[in-house]
Design a protein around this nucleic acid. Structure first.
Lengths: 225, 225
DNA sequence: ACAAAAGTGTTGCCCTTACACCCATGC
DNA sequence: GCATGGGTGTAAGGGCAACACTTTTGT
């Protein structure tokens, strides 16, 4: 055979989460071009010929928002007809996590007129089927945090246990017991005491960092906590 | 902008599992065409223009193997350069589960010269990066069975508890306690006694079927068992 | 009657959960 | 010295894991 098949355009779209101001936030871009010019969308864009998908996701994120070195994970691929008015466009969606310290770097990129963080509970209307993608990303994030210790990716490299607990509480929408949470997290052995303290209004808190050793993908057999 | 982007070809590839002869089996197709003519590959093929990805996966499976109504779930998308010698080809991989009763229907389809079931522990060399895809599918299947009750999808519509336990033991590569396994599965409330019995060499076994009610995607909070 | 697989309950243990007080700092 | 969040231990309960025998059929 080797007959000619019609080819779709392929994009990557990235749902980038962070934890800031006591809420879970997503980075959105206000589109500068048609279609959907002026409406908010997930950062993303066309994959270059022969470019690995992971690279494309990282590149688009970097180009459109200036974010680098975030935790990236493939989520799913969306290809329903009609999802893009330009025609047949398939999108490989990624989920990304970053610490709020990095968001200062956030800036609007070349082909986007604006970039802003939104509370996941207060989102504007989104372009394309990005509400669908974002919903899937959120479900995945919740599921991940329920069984893994990846939550620290939403925090700066160095953080307190209270910060980490807040992340879990906000994302999972539950209240957690402080002592149980700490016991559990520490029993996983993925945190390292930096020896530093965070001074604030009251008693200083110990600062931790995630140990490099397989900190990714670690799994807890039972829901935390 | 709206400049022209180069477009990849997009395929779907399906890793179809079943449980038969006390082992976990995968359906492979011997390729009739170049590239990799004569070597084994996952069933799959090009997505039609504007076709939903799920539909494409089901269609390819049906066309190449005659299988219908299998459990299908998107796995991941593979797009590394060099994975297909024909050029830039992105593959959306699916995982599929079916009962061994349906495999009688298996037959070679139009553009494939042969279809055969292989023990996952005794696989031939595969075309493209299909070993990679199959590995990912296997890991996902194991993970799914560890936390969910989807195992029955690898069995005929009606099955015994011993069958189901065998599935879990083979897939998860562990021995399970009969009583604990039965208690756990039955506590999930997703099985229904058909009232029929399976007569064999010895004491007949009760036959069960999965209840329609959300039998899919049900989750157990702790590993079974 | 005997061989072989089906089916069934109980107990110990560990992990999870619930809970209250002292500590260190800033003001 | 007082207000505020940081940090810690223990006891009760529920779920998991380990364990052996009876039942039913075919031969």
């Amino acid at each position: 055979m080797e007959k000619e098949y019609k080819r779709p355009s392929v994009t990557v779209d990235v749902t980038l989460f962070t934890y800031a101001q006591d809420c879970l936030q997503v980075l959105l871009i206000r589109r500068g071009n048609e279609p959907f010019a002026g409406t908010w969308a997930l950062p993303g864009g066309f994959v270059d010929a022969g470019e690995p998908l992971d690279k494309a996701a990282a590149r688009e994120l970097s180009e459109e928002t200036g974010m680098e070195d975030v935790y990236l994970e493939q989520l799913a691929t969306f290809g329903d007809p009609g999802r893009d008015p330009r025609g047949w466009v398939i999108s490989v969606a990624y989920i990304a996590l970053t610490g709020a310290d990095a968001i200062a770097a956030t800036r609007a990129g070349d082909d986007a007129s604006d970039a802003l963080w939104f509370d996941v509970n207060d989102l504007p209307p989104l372009a394309f089927d990005h509400d669908l993608i974002l919903g899937a990303a959120l479900r995945r994030l919740r599921q991940q945090l329920q069984y893994t210790a990846l939550g620290f990716h939403l925090l700066p490299k160095v953080f307190t246990l209270t910060d980490l607990q807040n992340v879990y509480e906000i994302v999972l929408q539950t209240e957690l017991d402080k002592r149980n949470f700490r016991r559990k997290i520490q029993s996983l052995g993925i945190l390292e005491d930096t020896g530093d303290l965070q001074y604030g209004d009251h008693r200083p808190a110990k600062l931790y960092r995630a140990t490099a050793t397989g900190a990714d993908h670690e799994i807890t057999r039972s829901p935390l906590p």
